[in-house]
Write a protein that binds this DNA or RNA. Sequence first.
RNA 1: GCCGAUGUAGCUCAAUGGUAGAGCAAUUGAUUUGUAAUCAAUAGGUUGGGGGUUCAACUCCCUUCAUCGGCUCCA
Length: 634
Amino acid sequence: MNISVTLPDGSIREYDKPVSALAVAEDISPRLADASVCAELDGKLIDLNHIIDHDATLVLHTFKSEAGKETYWHSTAHLMAQAVKQLFPDVLVTIGPAIEQGFYYDFDRDASFTDEELLQIEKRMHELCAQALPYTRTELSKAEAIKLFSDMGESYKLELLDAIPDADIISSYRQGDFVDLCRGPHVHNTTKIKAIKLLKTSGAYWRGDEKNKMLKRIYGISFPTNKELNEYMLFLEEAAKRDHRKLGKDLDLFSMNDEVGPGLVLWHPNGAMIRHLIESYWKEEHLRKGYKLVYTPHVGRSNLWETSGHLGFYNESMYSPMEVEGQDYYIKPMNCPFHIHIYNANHHSYRELPIRLAELGTVYRFERSGVLHGLMRVRGFTQDDAHIICTPEQLDNEVEKLIVFSLDMLKHFGFKDFMIYLSTQPEGSVGEKEDWDKATNSLAASLTKLGLEYSVDEGGGAFYGPKIDIKIKDAIGRAWQCTTIQFDFNLPKRFNMQYIGADNTAHQPFMIHRAVLGSVERFFATLLEYHGGNLPIWLAPTQVMLIPITDGQLDYANELMERMQQSGLRCEIDPRSEKMGYKIREAELKKIPFMCIVGKNEAANGQVTLRQHTKGDLGTMDLDTAIATINSHA
RNA sequence: GCCGAUGUAGCUCAAUGGUAGAGCAAUUGAUUUGUAAUCAAUAGGUUGGGGGUUCAACUCCCUUCAUCGGCUCCA
């Protein structure tokens, strides 16, 4: 018998009898064998001790690969469950997957896990690692699996088994006294798991459904070396420094206030300036791209929301009505109905389309108290909203332009990495299947044509249409939705939107609802975190701080400020009788991009000494050179 | 909303159930300074709100509000 194993580099290794993946790894190098956590046999993930008994391609995964990390963390989750079961035998295990950064395991237990208990569990995990317990895979029939887990009293596992077809072969993994229902693969021994940190606890609904029981979740992470764990902990610390809530306070950008109410933002002058700059840019770009700016009211009569259907399908997110002269008015959770009425105020010919109505529209939505999160999730926010009304023929072109426009705008703010999602028709949606397909295909085709990678969220569209979402990550890797491009098959019909076609009859237009930044609040927060507070100079509320060394240079500094302001720079003076070092330190902490230091020498020669934030002294030069230098960074 | 943690001066944080404190910031004064903190004085508080236990509560209990980390939901 001869078995040949093809490796990713194309090399082939021959064996005269079946071998384990681990043996192949050892054959290549002991170091690779040591670093490997799982393998991929003919594209299927396997355990390292899986026996290869046929000609096959083999990829060995170390912790460096995605699959390696996932296996490593998943195995750590099992290890944690084992420790928890040993320490707290009454706890029932449920599920425990690997996640993007680490793993979690959900347990059914009345009390929450305390910080002390977490340390206790962590300690037990290390002890179990030291015992060098092998992870062993066992395949069994569904009936056997049911017997196994019902003997253990693990009712949640039985519920999971329930969903598996009777004829399927089920795998379980055992290490020491712990058995878990699991597809695998796993590391082959607990010694593989070295550095462990249990990070936090939380509640989590069984199967993610809030009608179900709330379980107790423990999050953790693990690494092959302590060094990597320490680096990760450092990364979390660094990320905390970039948190927009901290930066918002430090740089005096915005605040929330108990008395004003949760989820309602107060924009301080510095934050308001940044917002103003974002919005001005946004307006100019939209005008350049053929959008028309509109303004609409903050409230609308109940009839409007009945026609739009919001009172039916969006009621939970809307605030209670206010009564005016016997009529109910609602504060708007969306801008669409108003934009539609602007469209409907006139008759439209197909020759006018597409019509693009844009507004920085402030909306108010009721968000449950537990979900509020800095500026990322608030109750009053401004959408950079627009509605594109077009003919079916114009659809593809509009979508494509829209995606390009969105990405260009995000890039202009410095963003580079995006996650793009295409969400398709969900259950119980409105509109014709034919239209859905056309719209979904149009979205997909545009993404493909532009060479963009995207994930499909099957059935994740709104009930009224498919959509494309673009997400950006925050400081600790949480993804936040910014751009959303949504079709709407619902409102054009409800509001009876029409245009007169070339055939001189009325047609219903297509409508795209879109926001590029998403909401100004969330975008602002993401922007702040992305740049760690060091905004690009065109967005810095103060671009230059003039620092006179003594009172003697105050007049000169004032003159400089005036000239800089004339040239369009946002410039301020620090006139206090503090030492220069103190003023510099403060300007640095405020993350002001440039400082102009002027002392006796500069005043005498009509010069300035320029200093760049985080970079330091750039030397002495005349004002025009300084202004040019500053502008070259814009 | 649910599970848990937290809430003390503008900010960052101290204080066994026994007189609420520090640093920075602020104000006033002195200092006139050369690339990340000059010195001194002053002022600043119903310890998130309400209730309770106690001779005595920042500290213990109840309740409520907010924030933080998750879950569910979402721009």
